[in-house]
C-alpha cells in the first residue's frame, strides 16, 4: 500500500514537473506592462544552445544571460523590435521563433504552399482524366459484359434467389 502510494505520488510529480520549470529567476519591472512584454518576448526567442526550446523555458546558461539582457533592454525603454534586432544581429534569424520572410527562409514559407499546389493540380488532373475515360469508354467493355451475364443469371433463377433468402 505504501509502495503504491509512493508510485502514485512519483507519477503525479513527474506529470507536473514541466510546469514547475519555466522562467527560473524572478525578474522585477517597474510596470506590469513591461513585465508582460518581457514574458512575451522570451517566449518568442529561441535558445540557441538547446535548440528546440525558447529562452523562457531553457535553463541553459546562455538562455539565462539572454533573458537578463532582454530584461535590461526593456527596463531601459527599448522596444520589442530593438531587443529582437539585438538578438538577430548576433545569432541570426534562427533565434526568432517567428521566422521572418527573406531569400534564405523563402523555402520554409513557400514550401508548404508549393506542395499543396502540386497536390491540388495532381488531384485535378487525375479526376479530369478519370472523367474523360468514363465518357470515352465503350459501353460494353469486358467488365460490363461480365456484369450483364451475372445479372441475367440472377434474373433467370429467381427461385434460387428466393429460397436462399429463406
Amino acid at each position: 500500500m505504501k509502495n503504491m502510494l509512493l508510485t502514485l505520488l512519483t507519477g503525479i510529480a513527474i506529470f507536473f514537473a514541466p510546469t514547475a520549470f519555466g522562467v527560473i529567476e524572478a525578474v522585477e519591472f517597474e510596470t506590469l506592462q513591461q513585465e508582460e512584454r518581457y514574458k512575451q518576448l522570451i517566449e518568442e526567442l529561441r535558445c540557441v544552445v538547446c535548440q528546440n526550446q525558447n529562452i523562457a523555458d531553457s535553463d541553459a546558461d546562455l538562455a539565462k544571460d539572454l533573458r537578463a539582457i532582454a530584461a535590461d533592454m526593456i527596463r531601459d525603454g527599448k522596444s520589442d523590435a530593438e531587443v529582437k534586432t539585438f538578438m538577430r544581429e548576433r545569432y541570426g534569424d534562427f533565434v526568432l521563433y517567428r521566422t521572418p520572410f527573406n531569400s534564405y527562409t523563402a523555402l520554409i514559407w513557400l514550401g508548404p504552399i508549393v506542395v499543396l499546389l502540386i497536390v491540388l493540380i495532381g488531384v485535378f488532373v487525375t479526376l479530369r482524366r478519370r472523367q474523360q475515360d468514363e465518357l470515352v469508354k465503350p459501353a460494353h467493355s469486358d467488365n460490363d459484359q461480365e456484369r450483364i451475364k451475372v445479372r441475367n443469371l440472377l434474373r433467370d433463377a429467381p427461385n434460387l434467389n428466393e429460397s436462399s433468402r429463406k
Binding site: V48, D61, D65, L66, I69, R90, Y91
Partner: peptide
C-alpha cells in the same frame, strides 16, 4: 568572465 563579450560575438557553445 561574465560571457558578455561572447554574446557580442554570437558565441553559442
Amino acid at each position: 568572465e561574465s560571457g558578455r563579450v561572447g554574446i557580442e560575438w554570437g558565441v553559442i557553445a
